[in-house]
Design a protein around this nucleic acid. Sequence first.
DNA 1: ATCAATATCACATAAATATGCGGTTTAACC
DNA 2: GGTTAAACCGCATATTTATGTGATATTGAT
Lengths: 210, 210
Amino acid sequence: MIEVGIVEDNVKIRNLIQRYLDMQENMSCKIAVDSVEEMLEYLKEMQPPNVLLMDIQLPGMSGIKGIEIIKKEYPSIEIIMLTIYHDSHKIFDSLVAGASGYLLKHTSLPEIKESIENLAEGGAPMSPQIARKVIQYFNQPKPVNKPESDLTAREQDIVNGLVDGLSYKLIADRFDISIDTVRAHIRNIYKKLHVNSKAEVIAKSLRGEI
Amino acid sequence: MIEVGIVEDNVKIRNLIQRYLDMQENMSCKIAVDSVEEMLEYLKEMQPPNVLLMDIQLPGMSGIKGIEIIKKEYPSIEIIMLTIYHDSHKIFDSLVAGASGYLLKHTSLPEIKESIENLAEGGAPMSPQIARKVIQYFNQPKPVNKPESDLTAREQDIVNGLVDGLSYKLIADRFDISIDTVRAHIRNIYKKLHVNSKAEVIAKSLRGEI
DNA sequence: ATCAATATCACATAAATATGCGGTTTAACC
DNA sequence: GGTTAAACCGCATATTTATGTGATATTGAT
């Protein structure tokens, strides 16, 4: 039996969903409130539900802030956002805050039910449009970076040593070469990268510019 | 009418899917090959399909490399991966390469059909397990960082100077203070961060650990 | 009013780094 | 067989960093 809770300030929608879910054989929906604050009150006293359906636009605390707080206190609760917002910011903020699913409000009752079951089975319910936005997120950052300075394998070793915070001496020890050889490599690295300090090499490396 | 192409080296599966899709009223699936190379040959001569179903493990070029090449040449083709692999690396590599969906091979024929329609309507078909992994990607980076070393504003300024690759002298110039003051700040920064070199501060900073 | 933290500055010194110039050996390439 | 690139080593020196031990002024909290 899956215990479902609802945080939604539109009474009509809330009652509709609650009645529908509570009617299901494998679900129970006893707690439906209209703010995160109320839900937190409830959680303090009662057994927490397995799944929460949550709106974003709410009186008082926003649903996204709510995710953070609830997930922190009750990490086992899976949260599905149910909202009209389909802008990337709200989607990503929700997911980063800890939501496990994101549905748009036009989702039908049977689909909501299915999503909850889906979640219980280790899935992550998302409206198709949302999934699209999430996937687009991965396509975006592509063309940004493609520097490729060609350091030799050994030079890359030395750079890694620098990034690990090692001194020349320790790098020499790590690779069992003399400190003067380390110096030589570093000289060459500086030439190739057009820099003249350890700091710049580390910065470049950690920025993925090598 | 949605034109679908298939790149899949298992003949049985390929034929099964092709026949099923071609049978649908709103779809046509005329081209089904067993390698990316063959598909590229085909695309050079014929009208490109709207959607491609693609395996990852293929003879010759991998499906992921295939996405890159095909999307580069024919950006309008939407690609759905259809594979047995559910490891994060393959999923993310596929999405970054330009895939619009990612289905696991146990997906039923009607679900595949539905996914293609879904895609045509602006969605992004994903198996629930895949969606879960994608969502987990966003949750990940959160608990990673919890450093909270409380540097003062001035100390943070100095750190930024270091990250910018400046020497003590240049940092002093930037903030119009003496080099000895820079030294003093850096001493304090080292104490707070438990390090003892510029390199480590820069590394920590760029890793978001400050 | 006192205390703690911050920001500022100074002097001194050891250690590390940056840079110049020199070299040998090895493996790959034409 | 000569050329080239890489990896290796050494010595010298100027600059930069790391660290110690001071000190003063300002500020916000107790």
